[in-house]
Design a binder for these strands. Sequence first.
DNA 1: GCGCTGCCTTGATCTGGATCAATGCCCTGG
DNA 2: CCAGGGCATTGATCCAGATCAAGGCAGCGC
Lengths: 232, 232
Amino acid sequence: MNFPDLFDAFDAAVLPPGLPDAAVLRLRHDTVARELAAGEQLDLDPGRAFFAFLGVGACKLAAFVSSAREQIVSFHFAGDVVHVPAQGRYGYTLSALTDAQLLVIPADSLSRSGPDSCGMLRLASRETENALARSRETSIILGRRSAQERVASFILAIWDRLGAGSQDDGWIDLPMSRGEIADSLGLTIETVSRQFSELRDLGLIETEGRSALRVIDLPGLSRCAGQLPVAA
Amino acid sequence: MNFPDLFDAFDAAVLPPGLPDAAVLRLRHDTVARELAAGEQLDLDPGRAFFAFLGVGACKLAAFVSSAREQIVSFHFAGDVVHVPAQGRYGYTLSALTDAQLLVIPADSLSRSGPDSCGMLRLASRETENALARSRETSIILGRRSAQERVASFILAIWDRLGAGSQDDGWIDLPMSRGEIADSLGLTIETVSRQFSELRDLGLIETEGRSALRVIDLPGLSRCAGQLPVAA
DNA sequence: GCGCTGCCTTGATCTGGATCAATGCCCTGG
DNA sequence: CCAGGGCATTGATCCAGATCAAGGCAGCGC
């Protein structure tokens, strides 16, 4: 996929319809394509915020807490828009879990003044709001839930995201390691592994090798995740 | 404080300068003042997102996780703009810790279309981004840090927020209970209490009664807040 | 002032998940 | 096809923080 194709995908999937051509052209001008190999990290000016549109592959957004282990803020997949904040108390990095292709858009390019830029601003606002909602859910999971609930929630989230349009047989491939899962859930590798085993023994999921996963009993898994019906 | 005074304070502290009068007037029209007694919760349409400008008092934004304890997402003080999300997987409530006066602004009122509304959109975007940064820091604290680090971080944050323009003697009054602190840090009341005692025994803070607090050794407290068990 | 009610503190014990310590199993490169 | 390295699983032990259980202390109504 080259820049024009990536930008077209971005335009079709994310940009609101009816934007003035001039605004789209200026955005296109400010946007840069990047290709990352698995494990590689995106090198950006840490003093500025960015949005990244992930056309192909999977990524993680992580905060450097200290030289110890990192805290993974979120995982992202093809079609996602990722908000990469400027460095504040912590520095953030976006790195590829698999080979990935993405567009990098400076946040201030979306909010640049101009009578035609309202649509862009609305886009930025919406994406930031999405990121906020995800982040608050993460906080809730990290604050209040047991290891099993965390792992079950994680599997459900990945399943939602990757299992929906998946292959006939329902198997999905986890692009992240156990260590990365642990870093996103505030657990250790060993605990994550034990919980995978336990959910397997309970007959809720199947695993094969390091990364293949299948959900057998979705309602059962939801129950393990401690999810209440949204109505209250 | 009545509505005009509150709105003036909001205008002066938050609204970007140079907004067209028409936009400000429309915003003023969509905005409602509310007064809450300590402990009272703000009753809003759960299906819509809001911003709240807190003119006077202190509030907490909490998510209902289960019928058990809630997870407190953030604390807010006079002058803050709070982002109250629409109900998603979890429901959120804003409640007063002390008697409070606030303005309630529907989020979609800031993003309403119109050539004059860019400034409003930029405002919404900025406030959402602030909320996102805070939320991600919360995630990091909840994911990776010990009880002592959490409590020390909490005290530092409150101190930053309330201690700066404080009385001559440097004492501040915590508007929230130990239980609420615990709910925001993902700990229990007892653990929070023990950590307060320990930080006191270490000579880093002083306490008096239930809510009076003074920081004695700011660098020492920062050290307590930052260290990971196995840092290098 | 007196007792009541709710927080808060402190102590004792329990336990879920971290840590330490072996293996085991893919995956790659020769 | 084999060897080696890195991730994953599994088991044993430990410990930070939860839970259980008393008191203690401020604020309030009477």
